[in-house]
């Protein structure tokens, strides 16, 4: 077993063990905190597929995160008011159905955005993905039907067959299972022919084209799958907070998702998990000490970017995974 695998297993156990312990001690707050870590990690696993494996620096993944959240919020609101969505299609509060819808909507929106953005590269790609996310953000703000600037509150958490989702621990376990499934998918993709092509597209698109694989299509599929995972995380995040608002779509969110990956280690399987743990830890500890925690978070982040490259996993498990 390589050192990184050991570190990964320890991280997975730590993330599972902490809330179990906290629930045993009657501290539901820490269970919710761990759920936040889990859901943010899931969103970042999605981005890691595009950013880490594909080298696609999307600064607009908040769009997919927020879309997933709004799918959950809108379906739940319609179901609560017993209004059909469109003509005859009923809304639902069933989580599995909501997840499928959230992932599908995120993926379908990602296809045209990706098709335009992937015509460019480098700085253009960063700015265009950012701009598209802002477009959706402003649309959400100026569209009053679903709360506009105020967002949308869910009167209760959506339902999962056989599980009481209102309790913190069962909901954490659902999110944890989703995260583990996404990590398995990430590893499967990484090792597949598609994953090899995607990484080759990152390293040298021209060579990939020379062996007969069009980098554009590979990247577009990766971008859409990445958006679907992040969209699913958005739906879980909406249920966690029982609220969805434009802040989920904002560019700060996109920035945070990138930060999570970099804190943990870009392109590494458990990078987003480690990153989310560190980020939420900083947020919680600094937030407890000072109201100005963002100031210090900025300083820490700046220090990490300038002086500690490779992220937490680079620190813990040594050798970089790719050059």
């Amino acid at each position: 077993m390589s050192r990184e695998t050991t570190v990964n297993l320890l991280l997975a156990l730590l993330l599972l063990g902490t809330p179990l312990l906290a629930a045993g001690l009657g501290e539901p707050f820490y269970v919710t905190l761990a759920t936040r870590v889990t859901v943010l990690a899931l969103a970042a696993v999605g981005l890691n597929l595009a950013l880490g494996l594909g080298g696609l620096l999307s600064f607009g993944h908040a769009a997919f995160f927020g879309l997933g959240g709004y799918v959950a919020g809108i379906l739940a609101t319609h179901a609560f008011n017993a209004e059909p969505l469109f003509a005859d299609i009923p809304a639902t509060t069933s989580m599995p159905l909501i997840w499928v819808t959230a992932a599908a909507v995120a993926g379908l929106v990602a296809l045209p955005i990706g098709a335009v953005s992937l015509r460019t590269s480098g700085v253009y790609f960063i700015m265009i993905t950012l701009a598209f996310a802002q477009m959706i953000y402003y649309f959400a703000i100026s569209w009053p039907a679903y709360g506009g600037e105020d967002g949308l509150s869910l009167s209760m958490r959506n339902a999962f067959p056989g599980v009481n989702t209102a309790k913190p621990l069962p909901y954490f376990l659902i999110c944890y299972a989703a995260l583990m499934a996404a990590l398995l998918l990430f590893r499967a993709i990484e090792g597949s022919r598609f994953g090899s092509a995607l990484q080759a597209a990152r390293q040298n698109g021209t060579r990939l084209a020379a062996v007969g694989i069009a980098p554009f299509h590979i990247r577009l599929v990766a971008f859409a799958v990445s958006a679907m995972i992040t969209g699913l995380a958005g739906a879980l995040y909406a249920d966690l907070n029982r609220f969805v608002g434009p802040s989920m779509l904002s560019w700060h969110m996109s920035g945070e998702l990138i930060v999570l990956i970099i804190l943990g280690g870009k392109g590494r399987l458990f990078g987003p998990v480690a990153g989310a743990m560190v980020f939420v830890f900083f947020e919680y500890v600094l937030g407890g000490i000072t109201e100005r925690w963002q100031f210090f978070l900025g300083l820490i982040l700046l220090g990490i970017v300038l002086f500690a490259r490779g992220g937490l996993l680079g620190l813990l498990s040594g050798k970089p995974r790719h050059v």
């Binding site: 963002q294 100031f295 900025g298 300083l299 982040l301 970017v305």
Partner: peptide, 20 residues
């Protein structure tokens, strides 16, 4: 570009919170 985006994102956090 990734490092540039992150470092200047960190600067935004510092400058905004500093201004506040």
């Amino acid at each position: 570009h990734l490092d540039q985006v992150l470092a200047t994102f960190a600067l935004i956090l510092i400058l905004s919170e500093g201004a506040r």
